[in-house]
């Protein structure tokens, strides 16, 4: 009985910790993105609220909470109200399997440094992240607005185009690590990160998670300058805030998955493992922000062409080559 209680308390504690850290990171990533984009465009970015604008996230939250919560006429009530929740929840749920450090010994037990170390962690990530598109799609459809509907249709077709390559780009990783568990995948990269062993898979994965995060150059469902706001055109107040926060939580989550799959997770010299993990995640997020400052948005058909005619064959070939090499090395 005491054993079960211990497990329950432990999992709840880990949940609370991760929830807090991820939300904090998401809030400050918004600020970091605005600051960095500003400097890249020779502006200052937000610098009014608090020193260097560090209280800006707080101000944003207060603004979002006190704004009018609006339901458009003829909107599908239930789906409209629920959709932002789906986006935020799926983004948070993925984090349950991400290991952010090696196993620790507490009271004579080994505890994985993740909420739970699933033995099908990779598949869990793929499954939950494929659910994320429902938030976008149902939100846009329920708004009963042309722009929102166009945004959600684009979201759907985008998702169909990249999801397959996303899954296939992870197959070589699983083949090299010989496990679906994220913890084992990180352990397999103790000496050399998979980025160096299989750069092609890493590149395909990077492009796919860019599409997964709905960011420039793949922000077709939002496309401010074509579709007003895309799927969240009709949202306001905290509901818009949930979409927004979900997007940035997703950024953190995808950054940490990139770290786990290709950058060697928490492995690194001199510094403690968790610090290494955070550094790598922030580097990936920084890369995302940098890409946003540089590239224009792709067109609808260009994205589908890229997904189906380039990324898919490349990742299939990559699986073949990786398999042949592994077989040849007798691994």
């Amino acid at each position: 009985m005491a054993d079960t209680l211990f497990t329950v308390v432990l999992i709840l504690a880990k949940l609370a910790l991760i929830f807090g850290v991820v939300l904090f990171m998401a809030a400050y990533l918004v600020l970091a993105e605005r600051k960095i984009l500003g400097r890249m465009q020779l502006r200052y970015g937000p610098n009014r609220v608090g020193p260097f604008g560090l209280m800006q996230p707080l101000a944003d939250v207060i603004k979002l909470l006190t704004k009018e919560d609006f339901l458009p006429a003829r909107a599908d009530k239930w789906l409209f109200l629920v959709a932002p929740g789906i986006t935020a929840v799926t983004a948070l749920l993925v984090f349950a399997v991400v290991p952010f450090g090696p196993t620790i010994e507490v009271f004579g037990r080994t505890i994985p440094a993740a909420v739970v170390d699933l033995n099908v962690g990779v598949l869990y990530f793929l499954g939950v992240s494929s659910m994320a598109v429902y938030g976008v799609v149902l939100g846009g459809w329920a708004s009963c607005s042309k722009y929102s509907l166009l945004g959600s249709v684009r979201g759907l077709s985008q998702m169909v185009s990249y999801e397959l390559s996303l899954g296939l780009s992870l197959v070589p990783v699983i083949m090299m690590a010989r496990s679906f568990s994220l913890h084992d995948i990180v352990m397999a990269q103790a000496s050399v990160p998979f980025l160096l062993l299989n750069p092609v898979a890493c590149f395909v994965f990077l492009i796919c998670i860019l599409a997964e995060s709905n960011r420039i150059p793949f922000d077709l469902p939002e496309a401010e300058n074509e579709l007003v706001g895309g799927f969240h055109t009709e949202y306001s107040g905290m509901r818009f805030g949930l979409f927004f926060v979900g997007e940035y939580i997703n950024l953190v989550v995808l950054g940490s998955l990139m770290t786990v799959f290709f950058l060697g997770g928490w492995h690194g010299p001199w510094l403690p493992p968790v610090v290494w993990f955070l550094i790598k995640v922030l580097m990936v997020c920084g890369l995302f922000i940098w890409i946003r400052a540089c590239l224009p948005r792709l067109r609808y058909d260009q994205l589908m062409n890229l997904g189906w005619k380039v990324l898919l064959p490349v990742s299939l070939l990559n699986i073949l080559v990786t398999g042949a090499v592994l077989l040849g090395l007798g691994l």
Partner: peptide, 13 residues
Amino acid sequence: PFWVTLRNLFRKP
């Protein structure tokens, strides 16, 4: 663009 934005990052706004 990556080089241009990186250079701008270290310029005075």
